[in-house]
Amino acid sequence: MSHDLVVLEDVCRFYGEVLGVNHINLSIGPGITSLVGPNGSGKTTLLSLIAGLIRPSKGRISVLGYRPDQPQQLMRILGYATQFDSFPMGLTGLGLIYSLLRMSGYPHSDCRKMANQALEQVGLVQDSHRRIGAYSKGMKQRLKLACAIAHQPQVLLLDEPLNGLDPLIRATIIQMLRRLGREGRHVIISSHVLNEVEMISDQVVLLSGGYVAAEGPIHTVRTEIKDQPMEFLIQCDKPRLLACSIFQHDHVVEARLLPEDQGLLVKTRDANQFCRTICRLALGQVQIHGIIPTDDNVRSIYEYLVGNQEASK
């Protein structure tokens, strides 16, 4: 078992007859990894399996060399902000984090310091002495994040961490996650917000129906989707001429002129050949201002890999 990876080997989890996740093989390294998928695709199940809150029906999991059934070791290096908005009764924000740190075995003075640090990171210091029952949804969300990061874990599992946050706090939290990723921690996020996933993720794991549909850096994943032609927007001075020239090549399946001289939208089966063709044409009579890949993003990948399956259901 690798000591710097979160490894899942042929992991399956069934809830009775209902499939949670099936045959999951993943190796997640440091940085920010996003789990993306529609509702019920198994994102939360996967996070809970990694945290040991549920056991796999089959397969093995190792988190930096620790097994999930050894909470006394695993939870020292792992923090998990779950999707549940429930908190133990009658506690304040500070009281909850302090108590959890005391349960983890930290001495009193350290607990106070660490709890305050965590609350500061999520911008909740001012409200730390209020009872959690009186918190708003966004504050509860931040408190869950604070609980997860309070003991400075190496692996951070965050289930929909940006839900219910206002734009300013959202930006702060994204910054914090980026920093944690840069520090070499394993930050695994489950999210629906695709543009934010794209903004912060180093790699994505696309889940669909309990299976991994794709994994890796976004660009790599896109290039591996062979059955979907890649789409480029070309901005040039003579789009009509370029369209005529480029359409003669076999790898080009579609060329569409956008209105008001916005450019030419080209779909190609082979990105490398397309680049060579464009280079050749650029050396000729067409002056090219820019080439922008328009479907090399999480949203497109999601639509290609998940949208088709969802539509066929």
Partner: peptide
């Protein structure tokens, strides 16, 4: 009670042996 309250996971996510 804590399972019904959906708060038992706070305890289970602490680095503590379940026996403890």
């Amino acid at each position: 009670g804590q399972i019904l309250d959906k708060t038992i996971h706070y305890y289970l996510l602490c680095p503590v042996r379940r026996e403890v």
